[in-house]
Amino acid sequence: MGSLLASRAAVWDAFTTTLFLAVTAGVLALLVGTLLAAMRVSPYAPLRTVATVYTEFLRNTPLTIVFFFFVFVTPSMGFTFAYKVAAVIALTCYTSAFVAEAVRSGINSVAVGQAEAARSLGMSFGQNLAIVVLPQAFRTAIPPLISVLIALVKNTSVAGAFSVLELFALSKRLTNAHSSDVIAILVGIALCYLVICIPLGRLAAALERKAAFAR
């Protein structure tokens, strides 16, 4: 415990880095994933195909490979990103596929009559989605989406292997430097992750309760 307290400035930096990765990639993945889900139900076949291929591909690729791609492969194609930026891009690409699936299952849970009523009133596809279908889809999608976001928080640790000094990378450094204090360090770092994940779980519960009232 002593070594953790001694390096609390470094822990705080690593914690904010983890939080930055999770929040930035989380927000971006929610946006991109929702767009992908919308593409998958759109009336235009090419959009559906692109979204399906993207989602299936990224869902079934190990996250480390996605990181590898943005850290080592894209520079050879002329796109070099700072490590943190590469990490955000990799996490966003990977997580957006899971968001897309969660939102799509939410969309499928909305009764078809809802979209038909919207169409019969003259709404466009975009209005139908934005006004009628997605608000209802998100209600069912909240529990799986929160799971996706919690997984994202933990997945930020992969960035540690790609030169981003976040919590996991810091824990390796600290345990190497203070081998007698390994357990305390690991427990302390794990607590830092909990500090991010537990409020997410709470948020899920609150949102679900709210959605249940509104139904």
Partner: peptide, 15 residues
């Protein structure tokens, strides 16, 4: 928009 439709199952926007 010029043709109204009323369904058996109402289909009011639930939210």
């Amino acid at each position: 928009a010029e043709v109204g439709m009323v369904f058996q199952s109402f289909n009011l926007f639930a939210h």
